[in-house]
Each structure stands twice: as C-alpha cells, then as structure tokens.
C-alpha cells in the first residue's frame, strides 16, 4: 500500500488548472498551423492566423488563451494500491481548483445552483471522476471545459437498427446545429455504447485523447477519419465564416451496450481544447 498525502493532489491540481489555461496542447497547436496552411476560405485563413497568434500571446504574456477558463473537469485513475491520507480527496481537489483559479487570475464561472444561479466565487465545485486501476500510481487529468461549446453537445438513444449510418447522421446533425456557436474549428468527441450516462462520459473522455492519435480499433479509426472529412466539407469553416477547417479532429470512444440500445453522445469542444495530465 502506497500512501499519498492529499496535499500533493491539491498542489498538482492548482498547477494544472493554471497551465492548462495558458498552454494549448501540442496536438491542437500543430493542427491549427497545418489547417491554416491548407485553408482556402479567405476570411477563414485570416481567422486561423489570429487564432495561432492568440495562443502565442497567451504563452508569452501569460494571459489565459480564452476568457472562458471553464468548469474544471478532473479525471482520476487511481491505482488500487494507493491509500490517500491527510484529508478528503474531493475537498483536496476543490482546494486545488480554488487556489489555481485565484493564483492564475482565471475566471470564476461556476454557479452554485443550476436554476437559482449565484456564482460560487472560486470556480468550485469541480466535476470529478475516479476510475480504479491496477498499481500504486495516481494519474490526474485536468480539463477546463468552456460552455460555448459544451452547450452545443447532444446525446441520442439510437436504435440498434439505425446502424452506423444513424451514428454518422447524428454526429453531422449536431455539428450542423452547432454551426458558428462553439467557436469553430472544433474538436468533436463521440461516445458510442454504454448506458445514457456512461455514453456522455465516453464522449467527454474522447476529448482528452490527443487528436493526432486514432481509436485503436481500425473500424472506429476509419469512422473518425470519415466523419472528419465530411464535417470539413460542410463549409462552416473557422468561426463559421466559411472555409475548410470546421473541425480539427474527431475522436470516438466506445464500450459494450445493451441488446436493445445504441446510445450516441457528441461532446463538442472548441479550438481551445485544454487538458493537462500528471502522474503521482
């Protein structure tokens, strides 16, 4: 049994919140640079140039890439031989978020009640997921999620008879309805299978995988490529002003499901798809 003091978790979360909001992941940066070279839409090309300039300014001047520094999603993979000591894990995570958002001058965007509203003032609570895995390490991923794109996400309980065509049609419908709102070029996370709740989580987890990687199953890797190609023929383009670059990547995650169902969730993200991972 390996003991880990939760103070370590707090420190890690604090740093990851700040860094995720200042430094765009390399895969997204590369995709933006490549897309700008290939873009043929005139306004689209200029917009992509400004978007590239933006992440450079963010790094150099230490200003958050986007003012929507998100609701903080935290994903844990906890080795089953780990024993947390020194306090409550969830409280430690929220303390890390609180400190990171204060120290990093990040926007506090969380309201304490979905209907009655009221800003909590420190961006807590975080959305926390824990998976138990083998070993004695803890892998933490912090993904601040902006709501311009989150609001454009959808889930559908497809019928098995809808087949892969049903999935393709649904993903394209969601992208079409999102249009210019989620700050395209977007990243599209697709979850297929599981239950209603698990399917949405798969879609969110799909957004954590670098877009220069493929689903390990060839069938789904091909589907990712096909969907990306079709989405980029829609003409929506950067910011919706017309062009080739509507999406930077499509990631699919799947899991077994029930004989009666084929849930499909589409979690839309923007060109500021942020995540930071650390292993303790």
């Amino acid at each position: 049994m390996r003991e880990i003091n939760v103070e370590k978790i707090t420190d890690a979360i604090e740093n990851m919140c700040i860094e995720a909001n200042l430094y765009l992941p390399k895969d997204i940066k590369c995709a933006l640079i490549t897309s700008q070279k290939k873009e043929t839409g005139q306004i689209g090309k200029e917009i992509l140039g400004d978007i590239i300039e933006n992440f450079k300014i963010a790094e150099k001047s230490q200003i958050p890439i986007c003012q929507d520094t998100g609701m903080t999603c935290v994903f844990f993979e906890i080795g089953q031989d780990v024993h947390f000591v020194g306090g409550d894990l969830y409280q430690a995570v929220n303390e890390g978020v609180r400190r990171g958002y204060e120290k990093g001058y990040l926007r506090k965007s969380v309201v304490g009640d979905p209907v009655l509203r009221g800003n909590t003032g420190d961006n807590t609570p975080a959305v926390i997921y824990t998976d138990i895995v083998k070993g004695d390490k803890v892998k933490i991923t912090v993904a601040p999620k902006g709501f311009g794109s989150e609001n454009m996400s959808q889930i559908k309980m497809l019928k098995p008879s809808d087949g892969v065509k049903g999935i393709k049609d649904f993903v394209l419908k969601v992208v079409e309805e999102a249009g210019p709102n989620p700050c395209p070029p977007m990243v599209v996370g697709v979850g297929i299978g599981g239950t209603f709740d698990k399917c949405a989580l798969l879609a969110k987890k799909a957004l954590l995988r670098p877009i220069d990687t493929e689903n390990p199953q060839k069938y789904y890797a091909d589907l990712e490529n096909e969907l990306l190609e079709v989405i980029n023929k829609s003409g929506i383009g950067p910011q919706g002003f017309g062009g080739k670059t509507t999406a930077l990547g499509v990631n699919i995650e799947t899991m077994p499901t029930h004989i009666a169902g084929m849930p499909c969730a589409v979690n839309i993200s923007c060109h500021v798809t942020r995540h930071k991972t650390q292993v303790i």
């Binding site: 400004d50 933006n54 300014i57 001047s61 003012q67 926007r107 700050c183 910011q239």
Partner: peptide, 27 residues
Amino acid sequence: GAIGGAGALLSQCVKSNESVAYEDLGA
C-alpha cells in the same frame, strides 16, 4: 464578430477599462 477563443489576442486591444455598474456580478 470577435474571434471566439482568442481572448489573449483581443485583450491586447483594450487600452482602458473602468467599472460602470453591477460590480457585484464579477466577470
């Protein structure tokens, strides 16, 4: 339209910033 997600770039154009009202609303 300003570019969504280009908050760092757009911040460079702001030369002065003063509060007018509804300060309690924070951001």
